[in-house]
């Protein structure tokens, strides 16, 4: 029996990473294989249907899989996550000279967001705005930058386009994950005083490795143990861990997805049973 994992091919490096991890896992006695998906929705559906045993899930894919599993009476477990998946924040950014000091200053503004299915650059920041009485169609115009739809925001292109639009004056504010703000500053897209952060979300969690109903408990336990045991001191693993953007795997936790669950409901993105509701979402 083989533990079969799904991962979304949002970038060619995904092949390098999982080929490398697969070699490590197999070398350590775990029969392991993976298949690649072109987007997260089919992966979440296949996980719950037992066609794959585990899925490297985006936070939004976790939310969808959890809802599908709930409706089907299937059991999921958030097995592990990266150290870098914990306590992220999204920020809402304005131009430095704009005079907007807080969210209330965005009444009537145009806000640039990432792809329709980006938790960090669209769903979560729009929820934050909504909680401050700012909603699309009433007192806010949303300009969406749909790059890599179906990848749940893994592709940074939408956020970068929103950031460019902000600098170009095409939008009054832009939404992005905290790491992208630092990235765009390092890249020189944002210069020292060209932008100002006016709001941050509460910390939330990002990806997790989810096991589904078909996962053999013994193999899943071994999978978890081997991932948690990956050492950054190991040069071969280190290059893979660097590519995947972590120093160490941490135990999975589900406490960091509440804000996204709410945002998904508010946006009517998925139904309580995991159905795709957003009619402008074509992964």
């Amino acid at each position: 029996m083989t533990l079969l994992m799904g991962a979304v091919a949002y970038d060619p490096k995904v092949v390098t990473i999982w080929e490398g991890f697969r070699r490590f896992l197999v070398d350590h006695g775990l029969p392991f294989d993976f298949i690649l998906y072109s987007h997260y929705e089919r992966q979440a559906e296949d996980l719950v249907a037992g066609r794959i045993d585990a899925a490297w899930n985006s936070p939004l894919a976790w939310v969808r899989a959890r809802r599908l599993a709930g409706a089907a009476g299937a059991r999921l477990e958030a097995l592990v996550m990266r150290d870098t998946d914990r306590d992220l924040r999204s920020v809402i950014v304005v131009r430095g000279g704009s005079g907007v000091e807080s969210l209330s200053g965005l009444d009537g503004a145009t806000v640039g967001v990432g792809a329709v299915d980006s938790p960090q650059a669209t769903l979560l920041p729009l929820s934050l705005l909504r909680n401050h009485g700012l909603a699309a169609g009433t007192n806010l115009t949303i300009r969406r930058f749909d790059v890599g739809v179906g990848l749940h925001g893994d592709h940074v292109g939408g956020e970068r386009d929103a950031a460019r639009a902000l600098i170009a004056g095409e939008v009054d504010a832009a939404c992005m994950i905290d790491a992208s703000h630092l990235l765009f500053a390092r890249e020189g897209l944002f210069t020292a005083s060209s932008t100002r952060i006016i709001a941050e979300t509460e910390p939330y969690d990002h990806c997790n490795m989810t096991t589904g109903p078909s996962a053999d408990p013994v193999l899943a336990a071994r999978f978890r143990e081997l991932l948690l045991g990956m050492s950054y001191e190991d040069a071969e693993l280190r290059s893979l861990l660097d590519l995947e953007g972590l120093k160490t795997w941490r135990p999975g936790r589900t406490s960091g997805y509440q804000a996204l669950e709410s945002a998904v409901d508010e946006a009517r993105f998925y139904g309580e049973d995991g159905a795709l509701l957003a009619d402008d979402y074509r992964p």
Binding site: D83, T84, R86, D87, L88, R89, V91, D178, A179, H181, L182, A185, R196, I197, E200, Y232, G245, K247, T248
Partner: peptide, 30 residues
């Protein structure tokens, strides 16, 4: 002004912890 946010990101990327509860953001060496 972006120090808090950027320090949190940087610490995460470097494998350090971050404590934002006090008046000054605090890195916990990893």
């Amino acid at each position: 002004p972006a120090l808090r946010v950027h320090l949190a990101v940087w610490s995460r990327e470097q494998g350090h912890g971050i404590d934002l509860s006090g008046p000054a953001p605090t890195v916990v060496k990893g």
